[in-house]
């Protein structure tokens, strides 16, 4: 059985020093998106610290902030709402258990949670060997889901909608070929070669599209910290 190569195991101790990301940001060169992202990351880190002290309220707040994008990611990968919920449950329990070890200087809590969710979902897809069957399905056919164009009316919900809108706009601004390559790489669980075969493009072309797409998203969404 093949397993997903972890690009981020969740073990912060093995990560390179994160540095004080936000302290090194250049406010003069920051975009509104990057400032908002820094504020969100700071707030999430505070929730994680409280969770590390067994604060249920902090956990509930983090759940309200993360559960929709994490569930949507798992669902997009698995195309099965029950399995997606299983994954989300496992991820939140892992966050709860490891919250005390979280250090904001090593990365954002959201990136950690997304990485855990994606890795587990892709592992499950590969385990059940239904990749080709799943890929044949369209995104709009997310069986068993109850797509919700409007999230909760809470402040977290509104913020999520803003964040999602900004990301979708950034992705939509990518050239179509880069957008397709990046989305396949993130959601499909395919290997480089399989992505190239699916897109019917040379492997080098696909790699270049993924590189350009991710760098452009970084620049647009404010992930760059020079």
């Amino acid at each position: 059985m093949s397993t997903l190569t972890p690009c981020w195991s969740g073990d912060f101790a093995v990560q390179p020093a994160w540095g004080d990301v936000f302290a090194r940001m250049n406010p003069a060169g920051s975009t509104p998106e990057s400032v908002a992202a820094a504020e969100r990351a700071h707030f999430d880190a505070e929730l994680m610290r409280r969770m590390g002290r067994s604060d249920r309220e902090a956990f509930a707040q983090l759940y309200d902030r993360f559960s929709r994008p994490l569930f949507a990611t798992a669902l997009r990968i698995l195309h099965n709402s029950a399995e997606a919920e299983d994954i989300v449950q496992d991820v939140f329990l892992a966050l709860w258990e490891k919250a005390a070890a979280f250090e904001s200087g090593r990365g954002s809590a959201f990136a950690w949670a997304v990485t855990l969710t994606r890795n587990r979902a892709i592992d499950r897809v590969r385990m059940r060997k239904r990749r080709s069957e799943l890929l044949a399905e369209t995104t709009a056919e997310d069986a068993g889901t109850q797509p919700s164009g409007t999230g909760p009316d809470s402040a977290d919900g509104l913020m999520l909608k803003e964040q999602a809108g900004a990301v979708r706009a950034a992705v939509a601004a990518l050239p179509a070929d880069q957008q397709r390559a990046v989305e396949l790489a993130f959601f499909s669980g395919l290997t480089q070669q399989e992505i190239a075969e699916k897109l019917r493009e040379p492997l080098g072309t696909v790699k270049a599209r993924i590189r350009r797409g991710l760098l452009r998203l970084r620049d647009t969404l404010g992930g760059r910290h020079d």
Partner: peptide
Amino acid sequence: VRELRESSAQLAFTASDAAPS
């Protein structure tokens, strides 16, 4: 790598919005 990881994590928002039960 850290910057790209943060950016790629944002792709979670491109999935169709859906809420768990």
